[in-house]
Write a protein that binds this DNA or RNA. Structure first.
Length: 493
RNA sequence: GGGCUCGUAGCUCAGCCAGGCAGAGCGACGGGCUUUUAACCCGUCGGUCGCGGGUUCAAAUCCCGUCGAGCCCGCCA
């Protein structure tokens, strides 16, 4: 049974309908590792729906959170914005209304492409809409109890004057430097490090501290299930405190937890926006088909670590997907987006053919037909779609080893042996030969002439590519067209 | 100090939730073929399921313990 179906079954024991919460922070480039949370949520959502339940995903963008520090990708003047809410900081590239929107927008676009429907909630808006008001009041009133819970769960004593609320200072604009002094039914009174003292309202004047905010959010949005990174899942971590705060302070049953492991970039370690080890999601969904991006996460249980290799490793993954597609594998089923169609043309073949045809669709289809695949409407549609990805992948992630270009003409010197081979080989090439026959012919001719096959292959590649190596010869020549190859050899000699 | 995950064939892993003949791919080996985009075809070999106990008619699977590896928490969120 697939992990998503197991979780769905577990959830359906509790209730027929579920709200799955996600909460990737828009504090920097949102990457594949972050995306695991979204894909995990969506796999569960689909499993619930498939099992006859109701489900939706809410995505809480915490744009009210302060900028923690100036990340390496930020200009120096952003030092001044540290401590201010993300939604109040200008876009470092000037293209959006705020810092948070700059990272949020491409992420939301990616979700669209990946077929992950979400209800977006921006934290600042939620606070301003008074959604947190009641929970904030309760939290302030019960701060001693909350402090006790946090102390018990984390083993960390909180300061005497601790409050579970961070006022947004009206003077300096920072949300992490003011201390609550007192509160009444309407206002929270504070003193800021900047020297300013003032009061703020419950609606948008500040936010609850993380561990309390999380628990409050569960209740406000009626969250019943939530995937989160293993950092939150550790003993004494925020889920543990959240559970007790939800139950004891807000009287709410905490959501079903789905902790997940990090995704590492092969050879580079964990993806961390702050360290610049990232492939932004928006970039990935341009290069890799959405069903494959989803499959990266869905094929593996959430608690297992993933090592992602966008290079040759991705090609293996795609091949595995193509194999499993034929078997109606559940992971594949949960990965497919919309009404995509798949033909039996392998991605690997598209990569070779695309390069030969210079990514021209009609030419590609012609070659695909010639190399023995049936080109019907489905294949046409499928090839058109995946060819674009093949091109992008070659440009972006493919190792040089599998890239090639066919030069206008080649000027290379052939040995007497090579010349002799090419002449005979070109003569014997027939238009109606299959790729296998073309391949075998290389061996036949070289045997006949007493030439080492390796020399023979080299001669062929030299004539076509000007290099001593290239794609598998039979398919390659068939793809290029036998007539063309014959002409090419004649011209090269 | 605490938590999570992993430990199954030489390698990468599936199987474990819900106990019922130990699995796949790759590699190795034999053969065919033999420069190839991580070649292909046929066949063979390959495991004390980390270790120790317990439950059971039956344990890779459940329970307890233990060893090893990785990560996370014990700053902030």
């Amino acid at each position: 049974m697939h992990w998503a179906d197991v979780i769905a079954a577990e959830l359906l024991k509790r209730s027929d309908s579920h709200t799955i919460a996600t909460g990737i922070s828009p504090s920097g480039h949102i990457h594949l590792g972050n995306l695991r949370e979204m894909v995990t949520a969506d796999a569960i959502r689909r499993a619930l729906v498939d099992a006859g339940g109701g489900a939706k995903i809410v995505y809480i963008a915490d744009d009210f959170d302060p900028l923690r520090r100036r990340y390496p990708f930020l200009p120096e003047e952003y030092e001044n914005y540290v401590g201010m809410p993300l939604c109040k900081i200008p876009d470092p590239e000037g293209c959006h209304n705020s810092y948070s929107e700059h990272f949020l927008q491409p992420f939301l676009e990616s979700l669209e492409i990946l077929g992950i429907p979400v209800e977006v909630c921006r934290a600042y808006q939620m606070y301003r809409d008074s959604l947190y008001e009641e929970n904030t009041r309760i939290a302030l009133r019960k701060r001693d109890e909350i402090a006790r819970i946090i102390a018990e769960v984390t083993g960390r004593e909180l300061e005497e004057d601790w409050y579970p609320f961070m006022p947004l200072c009206k003077n300096c604009g920072r949300i992490n430097s003011a201390k609550v002094k007192s509160f009444d039914e309407k206002w929270v009174y504070y003193e800021c490090e900047c020297g300013y003292s003032g009061k703020v309202s419950y609606s948008g004047g500040g936010k609850l501290t993380w561990r309390v905010d999380w628990a409050a959010r569960w209740q406000i949005l009626k969250v019943t299930c939530e995937p989160f990174g293993k950092d939150h899942a550790a003993a004494g971590g925020s889920y543990d405190t959240g559970v007790r705060i939800a139950k004891e302070i807000f009287n709410y049953e905490p959501p079903y937890p789905v902790p997940y492991e990090w995704i590492h970039l092969k050879g580079k370690g964990a993806m961390k926006s702050s360290k610049g080890i990232v492939i932004p999601v928006r970039e990935m969904v341009e290069v890799i088909p959405p069903e494959i991006v989803r499959y990266i996460t869905i094929r593996v249980k959430p608690e297992r670590h993933i090592e992602f290799d966008p290079g040759i490793g991705l090609l293996d993954l795609v091949e595995e997907f193509e194999e499993k597609f034929k078997e109606k594998d559940r992971s594949v089923e949960l990965s497919l987006v919309g009404d995509v169609v798949y033909s039996d043309v392998p991605f690997r073949h598209l990569i070779v053919v695309g390069q030969i045809a210079n990514w021209d669709l009609d030419k590609v289809l012609e070659i695909i037909e010639r190399t023995g695949y049936r080109v019907d409407e489905i294949a046409r549609k499928d090839v058109e779609r995946r060819l674009k990805y093949a091109k992008k992948w070659i440009e972006k992630y493919a190792p040089d080893r599998i890239k090639f270009e066919i030069p206008e003409n080649v000027s290379v010197d052939f040995s007497e042996e090579e010349e002799r081979f090419l002449k005979v080989y070109a003569e014997k090439l027939q238009n109606n030969m299959s790729p296998e026959e073309i391949h075998t012919l290389v061996y036949d001719v070289s045997k006949e002439l007493g030439i080492k096959p390796s020399k023979a292959f080299q001669a062929i590649y030299k004539a076509i590519l000007g290099k001593t190596y290239g794609p598998r010869a039979g398919y390659f020549i068939k793809s290029l067209g036998v007539e063309w190859v014959k002409e090419r050899i004649k011209a090269a000699l």
